[in-house]
């Protein structure tokens, strides 16, 4: 465990001293903050409108109308931003020719990868936790279903863990950061949008696409459904990607 911690600490320092994490967090908060403000105002306006027309047919609460939409947007925004966090993890080491040093160090390969992975996941977690002001603000203004919100944050965390594992894998196959970012965005977009499965060649293809989609388990969790299958799927996805990264790094030894 100790080697993992050393790599984790070193990587975290890299994140703190490089502008990338701040840019990612800044852009993320600018986009989400705008959505949040608009959703709140629009919700309050609809409440006033409804006072004339009566209570709506379906449930109308800030958790469902405002927060669910925001969580969904967070997923889509992170689809594009996580590759920026992960693109330099291994690719930068390769470009700077420091990878050879790491490879020849007594550190096992898995601890190098896990340390880097956990550092990126930590940065990601800090960013998502920094959005907690949104449900808190809504709770102050109205009321929030906190168990629903907790499940949604778990969904965001697991989805982020899967996305970062893809980013790490992409970073291991190239020494160019831009290529790593584009590759991981490509993989993530495919696994994100196949969820709908609409327009697939056949009904079976549609069913299969729904099964391998990253979006469906995430959607369930931001909707408040805690399903063991979704949790295991997202963890499996991360584990497979980490294993692939490990194999790619091992292969580079030959």
């Amino acid at each position: 465990m100790l080697p993992i911690f050393y790599v984790f600490r070193k990587e975290l320092r890299q994140f703190i001293y490089s502008p990338v994490a701040y840019i990612v967090a800044g852009v993320f908060h600018a986009i989400l903050g705008y959505f949040f403000y608009n959703s709140l105002i629009s919700y309050a306006r609809r409440v006033v409108e409804m006072s004339g027309t009566g209570i709506p047919d379906s449930a109308f609460t800030p958790t469902i109308v405002v927060l669910h939409g925001l969580f969904n947007s967070m997923g889509t925004v992170f689809l594009l931003l996580t590759p920026l966090i992960t693109m330099r993890l291994v690719a930068e080491e390769k470009r700077a020719r420091t990878m050879e040093m790491l490879m020849t160090s007594p550190l096992p390969m898995y601890s190098i990868l896990m340390g880097k992975y956990l550092a990126a996941l930590f940065v990601y977690s800090v960013i998502i936790l920094s959005t907690l002001y949104m449900p808190i603000a809504i709770d102050v203004l109205s009321a929030v279903n906190w168990t629903h919100v907790a499940v949604a944050y778990l969904g965001l965390f697991l989805m982020g863990a899967a996305m970062i594992s893809v980013g790490l894998f992409a970073s291991t196959v190239t020494e160019k950061q831009v290529v790593a970012a584009v590759l991981s965005i490509g993989i993530l977009v495919i696994f994100w949008f196949v969820g709908g499965g609409i327009g697939a060649a056949s009904q079976r293809a549609t069913d299969f696409m729904r099964e391998v989609s990253l979006y469906m388990p995430f959607y369930h969790m931001i909707s408040g459904l805690l399903d063991l299958r979704d949790i295991v799927f997202l963890i499996s996805y991360s584990v497979v990607m980490l294993f692939l990264s490990h194999r790619v790094m091992e292969a580079s030894r030959w």
Partner: peptide, 23 residues
């Protein structure tokens, strides 16, 4: 079919406007 109202005053709206830029 829950219905939870939320009303935002003018002052609160001004404060909320800080979020997209401030953070």
């Amino acid at each position: 079919k829950d219905f939870i109202p939320m009303f935002i005053t003018d002052e609160q709206s001004k404060l909320l406007r800080f979020i997209p830029l401030g953070i």
